Simulated scan of single mutants.
Amino acid sequence: MKKILLAATISFGISAMAQEVKPEAATTDTVKAWSIQGQNTLMLNQAAFSNWVGGGANNVGWLAGVNYNLTYEKGKDLWENIIILGYGQNNTKGIGTRKTQDVINLSTNYGREFAKNWYLSGGMSLQTQFAGGYEDGNNPEAKKISNFMAPGYLNIGVGVTYRPNDNFTMTLRPANARWTFVLDEDLQTAGTYGLKNDGDSSLFQFGFLGTAIYKIKIMENINLTNTASVFSNYLDHPDHLVLGYSGVLNMKINKFISTNITLDLLYDHNQIQKTQLKQTLGVGFAYNIDNGKKRSDKKDNQSWLK
């Protein structure tokens, strides 16, 4: 009887160990294939004046955003997805409410490795904004100059991607189709965002698109993310380049509070023949999501977002 009980106990222990090991192995494999990094932010600012001889106007503002990077990497496959959404407003006494941030940026890119760190790739991206913009500081009574999908930019192309580590990705697409959409009828006039005729709702271009993302850890809890792009239209004035740069400096105070400084530069001949600049500064709540795992042995760490 004792022998039977001993054998049963050993069998039960081996079975329990096997059941514990299997889920752990599956979880480890899943984590190595998928990496999810994200930041959710809510920035607030406020100023109040009473009998202040230096002058000033009471104002309150807010800025909310999400920035997610979802990457699948297994074997020779690399699939990167980026979601950037942001919107903010400021209400100033005597002036009213104006938007201070408005961005929708979605992209996906799949690659198949053909040499070390090099991938044959194809993907698409969409850039637009949530709400209307106006010539006089977003004053609704002023002339409208933009709206949701007016303009909206859709890129679809194929090329190569170079990704030596998690902090740098460069994609070169010698074959890239670019559509500019202007779906607001009030803005569908010839010359607006490059439209050829009154009433046109889109403009087609075909050319070269290059993009790069470079993440720098300046020091502990201070990180800079640089994003740059260049587009040249083969079909019409290829020398009229569309150039873009975005820099986000994140200074983490603690787990839930951080400071963000953003800088955006854009030159697009079809919009205005001047360099456009936008800068924001905010202090507020930030919640980061990061699985904290290496996606493969050849990749560097992901400490830039921690």
Rank of each mutant, 00 (worst) to 15 (best):
V31R: 15
S246G: 05
T30A: 15
Q302N: 15
K294C: 07
Y110V: 01
S229L: 05
G96T: 08
N226K: 01
N291Y: 06
D77S: 13
N58Q: 02
V158C: 00
A190I: 03
S201M: 12
N51A: 05
T71D: 05
L249G: 08
G111A: 04
G157L: 04
I14E: 13
V21M: 08
F130C: 03
N226V: 03
Y245R: 05
N109F: 08
N197I: 00
T30G: 14
Q39T: 11
G199L: 10
Q101D: 09
I289F: 14
L249M: 11
T100K: 13
T211V: 11
T30M: 15
N197Y: 09
M43I: 10
R173G: 02
A18S: 13
G123V: 01
I272Q: 14
T211L: 05
N105K: 07
W118D: 06
T275Q: 08
Y234E: 10
V230A: 12
T211E: 14
T169K: 14
R295M: 13
R295W: 04
N67L: 04
A48R: 14
D300A: 15
E135C: 02
G96L: 07
F168L: 12
L187E: 00
K299N: 14
F285N: 02
K2I: 04
I213S: 15
A33R: 15
A33G: 05
W52I: 01
W304A: 13
A177D: 03
A212D: 08
K196R: 10
K255T: 09
T108L: 02
L183Q: 03
F114K: 09
Q279F: 07
N301F: 12
N155H: 03
F148E: 04
I84T: 12
T128H: 09
A190R: 13
L126A: 09
Y162H: 10
N81Q: 05
